[in-house]
Amino acid sequence: MTPLPLAQKATGWFFQPVALGRVAAMRFLAGAFIWVDWWWYMPWIIGHRHVPGELYQPLFIARVLPVFPVPNFEIVVGTLVVLLAASVPMMFNKAPRLFGWIVAIAYFEWMIIAMSYGKVDHGKFGFLILLFLLPTMPKARWGDRRNLSEHVGWGFNLVQIGVVCTYFFAAWAKIRYGGWEWVNSATMTWAILRRGTEYSNWLLEYPGLLRLSQWGMVGFELLSPVVMFVAAKRLKYGIVAFFYCFHLTVFLAVEISFLPHMVAMACFLPLERINPRELIRNAPRLPGLIRRKLKARKAVPAQTRPGEAAREAEPAS
């Protein structure tokens, strides 16, 4: 029995081959963010080593899988040490599967420690999926565009679905818990009053514009799955660039950052084109290369239509 054309298209889309160079780039970005995370992005997590165990209210998954002990000084510090130590070889593609699994499990425990005291962030969902899928991918090197893998395509598609679900279900949660008042009330006004910056305080004088931004935000989140089905690469990259600009705007307006989500979203991009060794090697020659290209462009004679005399060159100033 031959598979239906629709099933063939779905399978081809889901397992579309991706260059291995993207795996090396995403491993480096994931490992680098882990260091940024504990040192700058969420440094308050390490403070839970001093929090009394009576305040620990484990997340649902920690209650379903009772393998997560109550955090104390040794568990919090030990988890962080293991996480940081394993992330370095993973970044540089040394035994990436072994250290990738260690990083994924340690970071998952790190999130249990972080989010079991009343604050739960949805911006880490895509990043967690990325960490658990990177160990399943083969060893890779920067700039490898020749070797393609359907398994890598499958893994990054799952990460992309996780990124899109973060947007879509954020809109669903707004409507579910806040109702349509979320978009019709002064939600952004309240946010700017609490966390406004010099870039957004002026918007308080335009409540209608803030209400329009609330509708635009929910509309954008509901339509975000479109990026998964766009075939034209330039259009897809343009949509992803809009996602990044959206998060930059939110950060400038109310200082809410989705940095781990933005790291996971990088799997949409053709990072296999980046080769750090070539960039470093060509860096000293880059100004000369740019000048030569500009001179070559100027040297090309202007194309003239048939029967039209060519323009005389203008004198150099």
Rank of each mutant, 00 (worst) to 15 (best):
V70L: 06
L148H: 07
E109W: 03
Y107W: 06
P66I: 03
I161P: 01
G143K: 03
L59C: 09
H48T: 15
H122E: 12
F99D: 01
Y117V: 08
G153F: 00
L133Q: 03
A140P: 05
D37V: 12
S116P: 03
G78H: 04
F125R: 02
V164D: 02
H50T: 13
P69F: 03
L55Y: 15
W35I: 09
G78Q: 06
K139R: 14
F108R: 01
V159I: 14
P43Y: 07
H50L: 13
G31F: 02
A106T: 00
F127N: 04
R97V: 12
L130G: 06
V36M: 13
R49N: 10
L83G: 04
L134N: 00
F33R: 08
W154G: 12
S87W: 02
P69I: 04
G47E: 13
L128I: 07
W142Q: 10
D37M: 10
V82E: 05
E109Q: 10
M115T: 15
L134G: 07
I112R: 11
K119G: 08
F108L: 12
P58T: 07
N157A: 12
M91E: 01
V163I: 12
R97F: 05
L134A: 02
F92H: 10
F33D: 02
N157D: 11
R63M: 07
V103D: 03
P96T: 09
A95F: 15
W39L: 11
R49T: 13
F68W: 11
S149N: 01
G143T: 06
H122K: 13
A114E: 11
V76E: 01
V88C: 04
K139C: 02
L131E: 04
S149V: 08
E150L: 10
I161T: 05
M90W: 03
W110L: 06
G123R: 04
A106Y: 00
V103Q: 05
V81C: 11
V103H: 04
E74C: 11
H122Q: 14
F73Y: 15
P89M: 01
L148S: 01
I46T: 13
W110R: 05
Y56W: 14
M111E: 13
K119R: 14
L83E: 09
